[in-house]
């Protein structure tokens, strides 16, 4: 039933020159109900001077230099994963980033830390000054057991996006929860240290209730300032580790809580 409206009315409707609000609503409803009328209206659509001036007004955005963080967000991560592997290899052969290191101790390994020491070390790595800006790496595969009670509690139960007070470490927040290829629950989180630094880490449940193990960590290269903390701002090593390990859709909302419950 295309009859009730003239081409002139339809054209005025399309160009925004129809003043009668009731008529606008009536034409909208008629087009929605009648494919033939929709086709007629489509055929009447044409370019207008206003289109060009709106395009011109926003053209500077098209021409502007693209911020590096946007390129990074879409840059193939393969290179970083290779870097992560290299970092792991280097870690296993090289000392921890402490001033006390010397080459004579190069065979020194993470597992030689007890859980207490690991907790301390993580505190140092995440909150402390030893990592250089942008410094990042991964502790040797799964051997660093998380033993900070506050962190463990956050990873055990806090939903993504909820800020958690971690006492001396600062403030923590889980940003992503997923399962890895082994079906183990993994959580990417960040810690905003008291000094204004932000660190990222990825922890996966050890299986058989053995607690959380740190898979990757990294310190953010630049201050985050007032920018919203998005997962994508995270340290590259952590992003790469997440990229390499993620094997499920991110768990959110009630699903996330339910999965945490049966970790």
């Amino acid at each position: 039933m295309s009859a009730p409206f003239t081409d002139a009315q339809l054209a005025a409707f399309l160009t925004g020159t129809l003043e009668d609000e009731t008529l606008i609503d009536a034409i909208e409803a008629a087009i929605n109900a009648d494919p033939a009328l929709a086709t007629r209206a489509e055929a009447l659509a044409s370019a207008e001077p206003m289109d060009a001036s709106v395009r011109e007004a926003f053209a500077p955005v098209l021409d502007a230099p693209v911020p590096e963080r946007l390129i990074a967000a879409a840059t193939p991560r393969a290179a970083e994963v290779v870097d992560l592997a290299a970092a792991r290899a280097a870690k296993s052969a090289a000392p921890l980033p402490t001033p006390a290191n010397d080459t004579g101790r190069s065979s020194w390994r993470w597992p030689q830390f007890g859980a207490m020491a690991a907790s301390l070390a993580l505190g140092v790595l995440i909150g402390g000054p030893l990592l250089k800006g942008g410094g990042a790496g991964a502790p040797e595969g799964g051997s660093l057991v998380l033993a900070s009670a506050d962190l463990t509690a956050m990873l055990d139960s806090a939903p993504s996006g909820q800020k958690t007070d971690l006492a001396a470490l600062g403030e923590g927040e889980v940003v992503l929860t997923f399962r890895n290829a082994d079906g183990l629950l993994c959580r990417q989180f960040l810690i905003e240290g008291k000094g204004g630094t932000t660190s990222d880490a990825l922890a996966c449940a050890g299986g058989n209730g053995t607690g959380w193990q740190i898979e990757a960590y990294g310190r953010r290269a630049a201050p985050v300032g007032e920018m919203k903390l998005a997962g994508g701002d995270a340290a590259p090593a952590v992003v790469a580790a997440v990229d390499a390990m993620i094997d499920s859709d991110p768990l959110t909302g009630a699903d996330e809580i339910a999965e945490l419950g049966k970790k």
Partner: peptide, 28 residues
């Protein structure tokens, strides 16, 4: 096209047209 926009927004085509109509009137 109106149809492509309607698909992307999950709206009927007449609604896309009327929204753009009102936008053009307001802009003018």
């Amino acid at each position: 096209t109106y149809r492509e926009a309607a698909d992307m927004l999950g709206l009927p085509i007449g609604t896309v047209m009327s929204r753009l109509s009102r936008a053009k009137a307001a802009l003018a």
